[in-house]
Design a protein around this nucleic acid. Sequence first.
DNA 1: CACCAATTTAGAACCATTATAAAGTAGAGT
DNA 2: ACTCTACTTTATAATGGTTCTAAATTGGTG
Lengths: 132, 132
Amino acid sequence: MKYIEKLRNSGLRPTKQRLQICEVLFDTQKTFHFTINELDQKIKNKTNNKISLATIYNTVHAFEKKGYLKQIPINSNQTYFDTNITDHHHFYDLKYGKLIDLENSDVGPINIKRKIDGKKIKSIEVLVKLED
Amino acid sequence: MKYIEKLRNSGLRPTKQRLQICEVLFDTQKTFHFTINELDQKIKNKTNNKISLATIYNTVHAFEKKGYLKQIPINSNQTYFDTNITDHHHFYDLKYGKLIDLENSDVGPINIKRKIDGKKIKSIEVLVKLED
DNA sequence: CACCAATTTAGAACCATTATAAAGTAGAGT
DNA sequence: ACTCTACTTTATAATGGTTCTAAATTGGTG
Ligand SMILES: [Mn+2]
Ligand SMILES: [Mn+2]
Ligand SMILES: [Zn+2]
Ligand SMILES: [Zn+2]
């Protein structure tokens, strides 16, 4: 399988569970946003195998640490993750609690004029809240 | 007191507890960022009166709804609030978990080129993550 | 096969936040 | 001032997403 090498290269053993999660997360053309519970549902639907919730948390965090997923900074009762790991931004539909990708080209360059001593900029993320 | 009218104008009864919370939040020159627990501590330090945690939650949410406080979109185990209700942005120091204000003038104009049908932009918030 | 570290797992624990429901209070009307 | 009622406070319980635990399982190396 194509994910075995990817996992090995990251120092992660290619277990059955991790490979299944990879298929759900990365076998699609379009990237998407998800919560842990939504991912759990997707896995249940796609396969007959049930993966322990603890394993899903562990795997998502491992993938995030390796840079295969991004966490989206937003206030919600659940953490949102993104399979789109390119630099990009988000619309947040307050009514439906849905995220929509906003490409860098749709925002234009952001030039942070202020500097903080001894610190480097790791990321710049724009959240555009939408109402009716 | 100066907060009585402010509360009345918002349709909020000026109770002893709300006035005390107003003093902690708004009696200072500088604005600041806080979590509910930090606010609870501040109240305990400033006054001898103890305010129920439920009341602190209720009041903070009431003030947020009235526009006297803003919630900061960030992933943390606690929700961050801001007494600075002007349009502005934030640095987030990943190492220390601290927020630093970033004025609009330090970011420059942000022009969102994409539109979502039937939706209006309510706010645009930039989060700049800092590492060492 | 033998071994060991990495991984999975069910369930418990954690803890910020929200819900509950009873007691207290502010303010309008009389 | 007294009443009345809707609003507010409060202690406490419940909720629910996330993390922890410790035992069982598994992957990979030799
Ligand atoms: Mn994480
Ligand atoms: Mn709120
Ligand atoms: Zn995205
Ligand atoms: Zn701020």
